[in-house]
Simulated scan of single mutants.
Amino acid sequence: MKIAGYHQILVEKILPPDPELKHPVCLAGRRSSPPEDCGGANGYYMFLCAISDPDHPEHESMLDWLGEDFDPERFDLEEAKRLLSRIK
């Protein structure tokens, strides 16, 4: 598993400005964002290793620390759109 320290954004097409559109729009995405305070890219990688392996020595403590279900493959397009709508 490789974790990058940045986001990759693919620009497929640039359209003329739409006067009705006042903020960026997300059309698609993949994977969940890291939990708060997980330790950056390397910490997130270690976190993913621990929660995905029940035999990992930190498996239970990481799940307890998180305090909720976490699906690293989940992406909520509507939530992304909602957050982007705050940008003026």
Score class of each variant (00 low, 15 high):
55 D>E: 14
25 V>A: 10
31 R>V: 00
8 Q>C: 03
37 D>Y: 13
82 R>W: 03
61 S>R: 07
50 A>L: 14
37 D>N: 15
39 G>Q: 11
72 P>F: 03
25 V>E: 02
21 L>M: 12
65 W>D: 01
59 H>Y: 11
66 L>A: 08
34 P>K: 04
57 P>M: 09
65 W>S: 04
45 Y>G: 07
7 H>A: 13
26 C>R: 00
79 E>F: 00
55 D>M: 13
68 E>Q: 15
25 V>H: 05
54 P>M: 08
49 C>N: 13
1 M>C: 12
55 D>V: 15
83 L>K: 11
33 S>G: 13
11 V>K: 06
46 M>H: 09
36 E>H: 08
85 S>M: 09
19 P>F: 13
76 D>C: 07
9 I>P: 00
66 L>F: 05
51 I>A: 02
4 A>P: 00
82 R>A: 12
36 E>W: 07
85 S>W: 01
72 P>T: 07
31 R>D: 01
39 G>R: 12
5 G>N: 05
59 H>D: 04
20 E>V: 08
48 L>W: 01
79 E>G: 01
69 D>M: 09
72 P>H: 06
27 L>C: 07
58 E>M: 14
62 M>D: 02
60 E>Y: 09
21 L>Q: 14
31 R>Y: 01
8 Q>T: 10
14 I>G: 06
85 S>D: 04
32 S>Q: 07
85 S>I: 03
15 L>R: 11
86 R>I: 02
79 E>W: 01
49 C>A: 15
40 G>S: 12
21 L>C: 15
10 L>H: 12
84 L>T: 04
67 G>K: 05
50 A>C: 11
75 F>L: 06
49 C>Y: 03
61 S>I: 09
3 I>T: 09
4 A>Q: 06
29 G>E: 00
51 I>M: 02
1 M>E: 09
51 I>D: 00
57 P>E: 07
45 Y>Q: 14
48 L>A: 08
6 Y>S: 11
10 L>K: 09
45 Y>W: 10
51 I>V: 10
29 G>S: 08
33 S>N: 02
58 E>S: 13
56 H>K: 12
